[in-house]
Simulated assay, not measured.
Amino acid sequence: MITFSTDISRIDRELVYQFLSEETGRLKGQPPLALDVVLTKSLCFGGYLPGGEQVAFARAITDTITFAYLCDLFVVKDHRGEGISKLLMQAILAHPDLKNVQSIGLATPDAHELYSQFGFVRVDPSERLMIRFNKNS
């Protein structure tokens, strides 16, 4: 059973830094300390196995009322295909700081099917950007 936490002290910084510098390139060329800024300026979600091993991550940049931007969502390769990304999305959208936000944006090169299941729609010709409007606000 996987659990999710927004406690950044639990984040496996080496795992996340490696992903953000090598997989996405977002932190490429930045020192590892740059990750601390990223983590403290975002609402971060870690996904953990019962023994405490982190296998998933995502973060949201938000004002908690009008807009949030979801980024850097990943599941480690050995645990992909287990439904963890769907559980992570459920945890993110249920979080008190995000569940009533008017809109949530994201950009994805290849995970449109995942996000579409949660109400996100494509909004630009590049077909990377997606947005979800909260029907309750």
Rank of each mutant, 00 (worst) to 15 (best):
H112S: 10
R132I: 01
V37N: 14
I65E: 11
E53C: 02
D97A: 14
N100R: 14
T6I: 09
Y115D: 05
I104N: 04
R59E: 08
S21Y: 02
I2V: 15
P31K: 13
G105D: 11
D72I: 02
G83S: 08
M1L: 09
D78Y: 13
F120Q: 08
Q54V: 06
T108G: 07
N136A: 14
T62D: 05
Q117C: 06
A56S: 04
P125F: 01
Q117G: 06
T64M: 10
F133W: 12
G29A: 01
C71K: 15
G105V: 07
S103I: 02
R80P: 01
G29H: 01
F19S: 02
G46A: 05
R26F: 15
E127H: 12
E22M: 03
I84K: 11
L33M: 14
P125H: 01
R132T: 05
L27C: 02
P50N: 02
T24M: 03
G81D: 02
P109C: 06
Q102R: 12
C44L: 02
V75R: 14
R59C: 01
D12Q: 07
D63V: 01
A58E: 09
H112L: 06
A60V: 15
S85F: 06
I11W: 00
S9T: 14
Q18I: 00
S42P: 05
L35V: 03
V75P: 09
L43P: 11
H95N: 07
R128Y: 05
G81K: 00
F4D: 01
R122V: 13
L87H: 08
P96K: 13
V55S: 00
P109T: 10
D72N: 01
D12T: 08
G52L: 01
S42L: 09
P109I: 07
C44V: 02
V37P: 11
H112A: 10
M130D: 03
A58R: 08
I61T: 10
L27V: 06
I65H: 15
G51Y: 08
L35A: 03
E113L: 09
Q102S: 08
F4H: 07
H112R: 10
V123I: 12
D72T: 03
S137E: 12
D36G: 09
M1W: 13
G51T: 11
T66E: 13
E23A: 13
Y69C: 12
P32I: 00
F57L: 00
G29V: 04
S21R: 06
T66N: 14
I11H: 09
A94P: 10
L15V: 04
L27W: 00
R132F: 05
S116A: 15
L114S: 03
L39M: 11
V16T: 00
